[in-house]
Design a protein around this nucleic acid. Structure first.
Lengths: 209, 209
DNA sequence: AATAGTTTCATACAAGTGTTTGAATTGCAA
DNA sequence: TTGCAATTCAAACACTTGTATGAAACTATT
């Protein structure tokens, strides 16, 4: 069994740097400096920079999906597989929003890293990202259970808009804060989640589901 | 007066390349090859790569703002400075959506370039982008005229969500297409505009304006 | 046609990138 | 301890990047 110390130090440093500054301007030398390991360690342990990014991404991607699905399952268990649509949408957007917004000390590097992924879409990740579709399909299915009779197309648009609002809020919370002179509180995560969810529900309901 | 041929050739080639492939992997050598000019021409005419990007951005940014505002003004003229909220939002999201989606031959490089800007946020642009806030404020003001009595906070959220849905639809139209097996038609621009606008209106109305 | 100013060009430069190498060091089993 | 594999390390490599240089070509005014 290899002594993982170097490996994990690299992963942690890389994730934090990517989350903070994006893929564009984080070099291998930045990472090894932050992890306090030798330059060659990355290639020794991961093969290449791209493979490091890919490993980071698949790990976090699986974790996020797991978190969403466990929230979804918890909501559906309450009433035998028929959760209210609000709960389904909360399970979809909640994990990301909670991890990325709110007081600094509560933000997770993992969530912020995933947002970077959704923003920058660097080559090694683009190749893997297709699996996301399969994951989202599960939520479409859950939404269909919540709103039987609602047409598929409207479900897709509803999910799409829900994710859009959540991601853009995370991505550009600064602009919203500036525009509103701080009157829109981007640290009140629960409020934001409810806003996103309720608008998405209105979108679905307004489309005569 | 300088012979602009080289200058404009560079601008056109750069805009197209940036729109297509993003800032990340477009090099000066790519640009000059596409423009069929010498490598040194960029530095001669623009000073540096960053200044080229900046010029491209301010030009397009001003044009987009102009387009939005003229649509807004046209809508407000009809009924003496009190356009329906739908028209205000249409003026906000319409130009971008029309330029970025729809049949290939109708898409404008300019709009696709601006979307890249909103995605990647490269340093030379980040420094300029603050002016966007002032521009958006004009739309908040117009929204307030349309919905007197609606609280500012709700207006900000409404505008934020409208832009979020529009931008994400452009940014990730591919995912939506795949997810829905083509059932969500991202080429039907008018339908998309009406969807975004109507959801945003519901968001505003649902907040007891 | 001669000249001065502008623009083009091939080429070189310095800095930064990810990766490789091969020797040194470590950790651990026999 | 000895031996062997795994790991670390400093250094160098090959390559790409944006930028700078100085000579050549062009343009237009005199």
């Amino acid at each position: 069994m290899p002594s993982d110390r170097t490996r994990t130090a690299i992963l942690a440093a890389a994730e934090r740097l990517y989350a903070d500054r994006g893929f564009g301007d984080v070099t291998l030398r930045d990472i090894v400096a932050a992890a306090d390991v030798n330059l060659a360690a990355v290639n020794y342990h991961f093969g290449s920079k791209d493979e490091l990014i890919a490993e980071l991404f698949v790990t976090r991607s699986l974790a996020l999906n797991r978190e969403r699905l466990s929230e979804l399952r918890a909501a559906e268990e309450v009433r035998g597989g028929r959760a209210p649509i609000e709960a389904v949408l909360r399970a979809l957007v909640g994990p990301t929003l909670r991890g990325c917004l709110g007081p600094d000390n509560q933000r997770s590097t993992a969530a912020r890293f995933m947002i970077r992924v959704s923003i920058e879409s660097v080559p090694p990740i683009r190749r893997i990202r297709n699996r996301e579709i399969d994951h989202l399909r599960k939520f479409v299915a859950a939404m269909a259970r919540s709103l039987p009779g609602c047409s598929d197309v409207e479900l897709y648009w509803g999910l799409h808009f829900a994710l859009a609002m959540a991601q853009q809020t995370v991505r550009d919370s600064e602009r919203l804060t500036k525009l509103s002179d701080g009157k829109c509180d981007v640290d009140d995560v629960d409020d934001i989640i409810e806003r996103v969810v309720s608008v998405a529900v209105m979108a679905l309901a307004g489309a005569w589901c």
